[in-house]
Design a protein around this nucleic acid. Sequence first.
DNA 1: GGTCTGACCGGCG
DNA 2: ACGCCGGCCAGAC
Length: 112
Amino acid sequence: MTEKKTNFFDEVYQVARLIPKGRVTSYGAIASYLGSGISSRMVGWAMNAAFADTSVPAHRVVNRNGVLTGKHHFPGENQMQKLLESEEILVKNDKVVDFKVLYWDPARELKL
DNA sequence: GGTCTGACCGGCG
DNA sequence: ACGCCGGCCAGAC
């Protein structure tokens, strides 16, 4: 099989790009949407490379608590928050305000 | 070439 | 309620 084997990295990028503006999602949500053969940790690791890609809004991906866990990886400590605020997403104490409201679940939105 | 960590999550004690 | 551990894949030392 010359097919690419589980390049879940690309899959994560695709889903991340599908995140609507002003919305956020979690690593586990993407992992769950991609199905078995992937865990949240891998999403984060994939995001590490995705964050280097401006085409991938990695700043819209947060953890289950809605906390900007990966903000420390951005070029600026407040870079991630700045990007979120730029999209009308309020961030307080490194946490997304109304996270559950802005939460965008691919397994729910893309399922239909 | 083996081991460990890594932006997490969920279950179990 | 809190703490620890296991799990999934891949890259780095």
